[in-house]
Structure formats: structure tokens, C-alpha cells
């Protein structure tokens, strides 16, 4: 007893931080770290999620290399990643537009933020109706100009872009709110100084405002890239991956293989998850490195 007390006394400073960290580390291990390794180990098996597992080595990955649907999903993921970034300039534009003092501006800001508040499922439904080839608003409007109706969600050429457009709606609102907060922190003295030096319009934005918005831009890129990579709900609601699988992304394909009505391939699903994880890893590594540099070098 006394020896324990003595040990505690001697090492109190060293032990305390670990004790405080323990609950968080425990949760992080159980819900993040261990599942990552579990997914990887499941991806080496042929398993229906119910019966016995059979170890098949890297066969699932070999099969992936010869799977058209996998390449379609990968390609769509890249399209998502690139086009989703449009939410950042769009959000900035809306934020600049709303960053003024007019009566009722709070109301306008809330209205612009609204799409981010409603559920993605609702966004998906609204856009599915918007695109509906026979009654949808889009085709009614196109019809006024004599354009034949376009079945966006039933046409392999447009479907992914149609879903991304739906996703950009809430994502733009999100980026807007990030920039609005950022704009509040912009130093009015610097703007004043810029004015005195005859800076205005684009030059003012580019050289005076944007550098001060760098933290907001950084966060906007982070949430948008992650949002693009984990896009799932809109696809599931709007097209269910169709027509004939052309709007799938990796996250959706993984779900389909492992959990959907005709799924039952846990190993194959896990292999897709691992690939998606590795893609995210590239990005996360960059993000962590930057954070680390900022903290150590104060960039």
C-alpha cells in the first residue's frame, strides 16, 4: 500500500496526463483504430457475414482489379472530388455578397444557410423531383425554351453530375458560413490601409481579404474533400447507384457489396473500404503534416 502511494507520489506528474487521456484513447482505439485493422483483416477472407470465413489472401484485391464496377466507382469518386470543390468559391461568393449591413441581413443569412440544416435525404428527394423527366421543375423550364426533357438521373452521361449538383447546394451553404465567420475576423485597419493604397475590387479581394481568410479556406477544403469522399446518402436516395451502376462511388459500392439486399460479400466490401481508406489516407497525411508544421513552426 505504502509502496503504491510512494510510486504515485514519485511519478504523479508523469502519470497524470496519461490517466486523463485514457478514456479518449480507449474510445478512439475501439471505434477507429481497431476497426481499421479489422476491415483489413476481413478483406482477406471470403465471408458472407453469417457463416464460416475462408481465408483467401489477396484474392479480393485481385478481383477488384478486374471489376468494371470498381473502376466506374473510382472514376466517379474523382469527379466528385474535383467538382465538389466548386462549393468553396461559390460559398465565398455568397459570403461576400451577404457580408453587408442591410435590414434583415440575419434573415437572409439564415435562409442561405438553410440547405445545410435540412437532411441530405430531403435534399436528395427535392432534387430527384426537380429532375423528374415528366413533372420536374427543371424540365418544365427547359420545355419553355423548347428543349426536350432530359432524364438526368436515368442517363449515364449526366447522372453523376446531377447528384453532385444536388450535393453542392448544402455544401455551398456550409462553406458560406465558414467564410462569413472568417470575414468577421478580417482586420478593418488592413482594408482601410489597402483603400489608401488605391486597392479595390479583385485586387483587394486577392491580396488583402483572401490571405486573411486562409484558415477558413483551409477548413472549407478539409470538410469539402471529406464530404466528397464519403458521399453516399444522396446517391442512395436519388438513384440507388443506377442506372445500371453508373452513379456508384466507392463508399456506395462497398455498402452494396457488403450490406445491401443482394450483398453478402463482407470480404469484398472490406477490400473496397480499404482502398477508399488508402485514398483518404493520402489526403489525411497531407492534412496532418500541415497541422504539425503549423504548430511547430507557427506558419
Amino acid at each position: 500500500m505504502s509502496s503504491l502511494a510512494a510510486y504515485w507520489k514519485a511519478n504523479q506528474l508523469r502519470l497524470t496526463p496519461w490517466l486523463f487521456l485514457a478514456p479518449g484513447m480507449f474510445m478512439f482505439a475501439v471505434y477507429v483504430i481497431i476497426p481499421i485493422f479489422q476491415s483489413f483483416s476481413i478483406s482477406l477472407y471470403d465471408w458472407d457475414g453469417l457463416g464460416a470465413r475462408t481465408f483467401i489472401g489477396f484474392d479480393n484485391y485481385v478481383e477488384l482489379t478486374d471489376d468494371e464496377a470498381f473502376y466506374t466507382s473510382l472514376k466517379n469518386n474523382v469527379i466528385w472530388l474535383l467538382l465538389y470543390l466548386l462549393a468553396i468559391p461559390a460559398g465565398l461568393f455568397v459570403a461576400l455578397f451577404l457580408n453587408q449591413t442591410v435590414t434583415g441581413i440575419r434573415l437572409y443569412k439564415s435562409l442561405f444557410f438553410f440547405p445545410f440544416v435540412i437532411s441530405q435525404v430531403v435534399v436528395g428527394l427535392v432534387f430527384a423531383w426537380f429532375y423528374d423527366p415528366s413533372y420536374g421543375l427543371m424540365n418544365v423550364v427547359l420545355g419553355l425554351f423548347g428543349v426536350e426533357p432530359i432524364a438526368v438521373l436515368a442517363d449515364e452521361r449526366f447522372v453523376t453530375y446531377g447528384i453532385i449538383a444536388a450535393g453542392l447546394w448544402p455544401q455551398t451553404a456550409y462553406c458560406m458560413i465558414l467564410y462569413l465567420t472568417g470575414l468577421n475576423a478580417v482586420d478593418p485597419e488592413q482594408i482601410e490601409a489597402g483603400r489608401l493604397d488605391n486597392a479595390k475590387g479583385w485586387r483587394m479581394l486577392w491580396y488583402v481579404i483572401l490571405p486573411q481568410l486562409k484558415p477558413a479556406t483551409f477548413i472549407a477544403i478539409v470538410v469539402t474533400v471529406i464530404g466528397a469522399l464519403r458521399s453516399f446518402d444522396l446517391i442512395s436516395i436519388m438513384t440507388d447507384g443506377g442506372p445500371y451502376g453508373t452513379s456508384r462511388v466507392l463508399a456506395f459500392y462497398m455498402y452494396e457489396q457488403a450490406f445491401s439486399e443482394y450483398g453478402f460479400r463482407m470480404g469484398y466490401g472490406a477490400a473496397i473500404a480499404v482502398v477508399l481508406f488508402l485514398i483518404m489516407m493520402i489526403y489525411i497525411a497531407y492534412f496532418l503534416r500541415r497541422m504539425w508544421r503549423e504548430e511547430t513552426e507557427g506558419l
Binding site: 476497426p35 453516399f232 462497398m254 466490401g269 477508399l276 481508406f277
Partner: peptide
């Protein structure tokens, strides 16, 4: 996305 692997 990995948490999808946990049976709900």
C-alpha cells in the same frame, strides 16, 4: 465510412 462495417 468505416463505421458502416459495424452491424446496426
Amino acid at each position: 465510412m468505416l463505421d458502416l462495417l459495424k452491424p446496426s
